[in-house]
Computed example of a mutant assay.
Amino acid sequence: MDHSKFSVDAIVTIYRDNEIFIGPNQYRLLKQILADGSINAAAKNLKMSYQHAWHLIDKINRLSPIPVVIRQKGGKDGGGCSLSPYGMQVLESYAMREIEIIKLLEQTNSELESCFF
């Protein structure tokens, strides 16, 4: 008889108009942009193509009522980007939702064993 444990898992994804606004990949990318100050550096650190990273950021900004990522054009010191104050709110809100879900899952998983033999 198999005595492995049952568990419930979830991935937090926030949608707008049935399109992914922010999920785990977007969250990691935004956090890395915050640390690196550029989409290119963030993409490299996350082992993601620049094109894919740019597409994710473009989609977040397109779905957002206010820009999340602000890009600066290249110049003498090169370009870069930063998160807008609204972008910081998006990051914090996603992290809070994730913590709430994790707590719920921990409770659910601790009660789950009594439901299934």
Score class of each variant (00 low, 15 high):
Asp2Cys: 06
Ser4Pro: 15
Phe6Asn: 15
Ser7Cys: 06
Asp9Gln: 15
Ile11Phe: 13
Ile11Ala: 15
Ile14Val: 09
Ile14Gln: 14
Ile14Ser: 12
Asp17Tyr: 12
Asn18Phe: 14
Asn18Val: 12
Phe21Tyr: 11
Gly23Trp: 07
Pro24Gln: 05
Tyr27Asn: 10
Tyr27Arg: 06
Gln32Cys: 06
Gln32Trp: 03
Leu34His: 04
Ala35Tyr: 01
Asp36Gly: 00
Gly37Leu: 09
Ser38Tyr: 02
Ile39His: 05
Asn40Ser: 09
Asn40Cys: 05
Ala43Arg: 00
Lys44Leu: 11
Lys44Tyr: 06
Leu46Asn: 06
Lys47Tyr: 04
Ser49Phe: 00
Ser49Gln: 01
Ser49Thr: 05
Gln51Lys: 14
Asp58Lys: 10
Lys59Phe: 13
Ser64Glu: 02
Ser64Gly: 03
Ile66Met: 04
Ile66Pro: 03
Ile66Thr: 11
Pro67Ile: 09
Val68His: 01
Val69Ala: 02
Val69Ser: 01
Val69Cys: 01
Arg71Asp: 06
Gln72Pro: 00
Lys73Leu: 09
Lys73Met: 06
Gly74Gln: 10
Gly75Gln: 03
Lys76Gly: 03
Asp77Ser: 13
Asp77Glu: 14
Gly78Arg: 10
Leu83Trp: 07
Leu83Cys: 06
Gly87Tyr: 00
Gly87Leu: 06
Gln89Val: 14
Val90Met: 09
Glu92Leu: 05
Ala95Leu: 10
Arg97Thr: 14
Arg97Asn: 12
Ile102Trp: 09
Ile102Gly: 04
Leu104Lys: 11
Leu104Ile: 04
Gln107Lys: 13
Gln107His: 12
Thr108Met: 13
Ser114Asp: 15
Ser114Leu: 15
Phe116Leu: 05
